[in-house]
């Protein structure tokens, strides 16, 4: 029983950690494209761990099946949403941030191939 609880706590903690990473990523990263990386990846694993914890907590076959389905749909919809957001940004000509732009305007567009 305590082992079970410990496992659940571990998975919830991992879930919280990766969701936190996603939040930090959204705040720290420079543009919409890089922020989308944060929103999809870390979030997907964060939600994944949390759902695994939920599945373990309920423990019956029906609930596990349903939580697994939940995970499947998150894994399909999450990248699709990120794709549509960045696609919208790209079609609005939102510039892609590169490391060049960090060097404070001094030398921009040094076009050596």
């Amino acid at each position: 029983m305590t082992l079970l609880t410990a496992t659940i706590v571990l998975f919830v903690a991992l879930g919280v950690f990766f969701t936190l990473v996603a939040a930090v990523g959204v705040l720290r990263l420079p543009d919409v494209y890089t922020r989308s990386h944060a929103a999809t990846k870390a979030d997907t694993l964060g939600a994944g761990f949390t759902i695994v914890a939920v599945g373990i907590y309920f423990g019956t076959t029906g609930e596990i099946l349903r939580t697994a389905l939940l995970l499947v749909f998150i894994y399909i919809t999450n990248p699709t949403a990120a794709h549509s957001i960045t696609r919208a940004a790209y079609s609005q000509d939102v510039e892609v941030w590169t490391t060049d732009k960090n060097d404070s305007a001094a030398e921009r567009g040094g076009d050596s191939p």
Partner: peptide, 26 residues
Amino acid sequence: FANSVTLTPGTLTVDTVGSELLVHSL
């Protein structure tokens, strides 16, 4: 393909035209 690119290491599918993908990598 597009979704597994988005889900895996530091890559993100931005746009697709047919089988041509625009991929942003971190």
